[in-house]
Amino acid sequence: MVDLRVNLGKIQLKNPVMTASGTFGYGTEYYDFFDVSRIGGIVVKGTTLRDRQGNAYPRMAETPSGMLNAVGLQNKGVEYFAENIYPTLLDLNTSIFVNISGSTVEEYVETAAIINELDHIPGIELNISCPNVKEGGMTFGTSCPSAAQAVKEVRRVYGKELMVKLSPNVTSISEIAKAVEGEGADSISLINTLLGMAIHAETRKPVLSTVTGGLSGPAVKPVALRMVWEVSKSVGIPVVGMGGIINATDAIEFLLAGATAIQIGTANFIDPTTPVKVLEGIEDYLLRHKMNSVSELIGALEV
């Protein structure tokens, strides 16, 4: 038996495989495909203080080895989550994170305070990196002072695991990482989507209703790996890596680059059983390389 447990600041995951926010609904969408309790953690859909209808259709464009999305944080608000969705998650035996977003620091704080009261939610993922909303979102995560301020204020009301999700759309992601670590983040997840766009040549119009959107999928993996590697060398807190992981080999590359855990995102849309396949693949790798614990892989890149 290999030891798959990993420590993310205040909590321990039973294994390093998580699912990324916005790609896994509330978990229930995947019950027909595999036992969601097998994986280390799930990050549920981005949640805001109030109901959001999201952006107009079209919200998606397929790209070479990836996709652009412009969903825009469609959700029914944190109160609805706490009353109607949270009770359905209580039987899941995995660590459930709520990804929270806001237009103002006050909205982040209020949302976090409500989630703080939910016993079965051991952590939040603070989304300061959504590229698809007009106000807030990524604007917090693209400068050190605003990223630091959001984390600082949320930290005051939120005592459990505070994971901060960073945007790749910055000059130096390590500087942002250091700034949020300095305000008490327990862990850092990266990367959110890369800002991109798609154009219909024949109609001379943008594909997405919002013109620009967030790129995800294998197309972004090399960028994500580089950023995980840079950030994990710059901070002392655990890093959760994501960006284009579709199989166990991809996941292991992120662990080697310094990630303590990984998140599966876009791959869930194409093969909804990807998280368990990645989990089994990591276990096989450890056995094959005669390693006792997944922690031996973390940051083990030989440069």
């Binding site: 916005g22 859909k45 209808q53 999201g54 919200r59 998606m60 969903v71 869930n268 909804p272």
Partner: peptide, 22 residues
């Protein structure tokens, strides 16, 4: 018919505007 990423309610890409919202 709308473009979809998943087909089972996870991605929220294929919305249409209805009297109940998106």
């Amino acid at each position: 018919e709308n473009t979809m990423a998943c087909g089972f309610g996870a991605c929220l890409c294929c919305v249409t505007d209805t009297t109940d919202g998106h």
